[in-house]
Nucleic acid binder design. Structure first.
Lengths: 226, 226
DNA sequence: CTTTCTTGTCACAGCTTTATCACAGCCCTG
DNA sequence: CAGGGCTGTGATAAAGCTGTGACAAGAAAG
């Protein structure tokens, strides 16, 4: 999930960037309106967070320009007391606003709300099911209190998706699609991937306790266990 | 300049830590009162920032204990509306308080004011994480008490950014963006830069202890919380 | 005008990750 | 009981990534 952060106050911009990165967003940071416009064109981020007071190209104009091209969610940063800014901002196409000074939590909450309204899936920082904790940003799992086990990119994607849908059985087709993309892999590859993943996280890979096999269907992450 | 941050809300604690780190403080982070007390004894920080609601040992008691041993400046984090907390906190020895939600800038301002009142010299323009001290202005690092090692501009930018985000893994894309800017560098250049930086700061570049590699992802600065 | 420093480019070795193949065991059906 | 379809297993090949060393262009310093 890419977010473009535009603010000419570098301290604040860094803080906003930090906050989003903490939530596993990919952050693109710019410090003036013109740069924001260029990067928006080049990167097409999932979300734009911008200060109304921007150098070289002000927030409202930028807002309008983006709106003319796409419906990328836009979150405005405004100063308390400038209610006119908010109204004007919403008129030119912003989706929501946050008044400075704001708490990072509030910012993220607003951002996620806006993204959800736009129909996007917001991915959490770490995924936890039962005693397994997956950290996709570091590509590692922790089983209970043990040392983290490093995972490969494909293993991470598979486990992430299985844990996201814990308790449900996912068909081979769905898994292939999600891990390798359309036209991606075949059954053999998935079989090997599951095997390698099990060898890393299952105490006894021959008697799996986390990743169950449902013959003729696919695989599922066992929800119970505590 | 060492600051001990104690807050059981990890998100908030991370944020406070980030803010201080940004101002080149060395941050020690703990999540409950007992840990705070232990680390205070061990580290003797220049400043303590603590939430009044701490597990295992509450903020007020902690405040008193510290006061009995030294006059380390203490900054309290309180919730709006709990005026009694503030009064009580100041009675048991806190030097100042900040009401949540607060802006990071405000927090740092209060912290520096308190430090000044205590007669300490505030914030040299260096960034400190673990035993590494980076002085971006002079473009040199110091490892522990050794002689400073000179860095090149690119090395400085990379290390500065890695240390700012200590403990997190930054992807190759993010690093490329931050060091060279958009349209800037490629993987080879980053690889070389990391190599050169390691050869300067790592005791054994083949077994890095500061800059970790996460295969397929990127690099991170190890947050040594020993 | 040299010399030194910084940065970018390239090729290579070693390792990790991924893909491919062959085979054995199991379960169902006929 | 035989055969086909799955699944797990092991071995091996191919592709990709990382660390390393060497070298050259360009800038900065003397």
């Amino acid at each position: 999930m890419k977010v473009l952060v535009a603010d000419d106050d570098r301290v604040l911009a860094d803080l906003v960037a930090f906050t989003f990165r903490r939530e596993r967003f990919q952050v693109i940071q710019v410090f003036d309106g013109e740069a924001a416009w260029q990067r928006w064109l080049a990167e097409r981020p999932d979300l734009v967070v911008l200060d109304v007071n921007l150098l070289r190209l002000d927030g409202f104009t930028l807002c309008q320009r983006i709106r003319q091209q796409a419906d990328t969610p836009i979150l405005l940063l405004t100063v308390r007391g400038e209610e006119d800014d908010i109204v004007h901002g919403l008129q030119v196409g912003a989706d929501d606003y946050v008044v400075k000074p704001f708490s990072p939590r509030q910012l993220v909450a607003r951002a996620e709300a806006v993204l959800r309204r736009a129909g996007k899936v917001v991915t959490p920082a770490v995924r936890q099911v039962g005693e397994l904790t997956l950290d996709p940003g570091r590509r590692e799992v922790r089983i209970g209190q043990t040392e983290p086990v490093p995972l490969t990119p494909l293993e991470t994607r598979l486990l992430d998706y299985l844990m996201l849908n814990a308790g449900r059985v996912l068909t081979v087709e769905v898994l292939l699609d999600h891990v390798w993309g359309p036209e991606g892999g075949d059954r053999d590859m998935l079989r090997q991937l599951v095997r390698r993943l099990r060898s890393k996280i299952e105490p006894d890979p021959a008697q799996p306790t986390y990743i169950e096999t449902v013959a003729g269907l696919g695989y599922g992450f066992v929800a119970s266990s505590k």
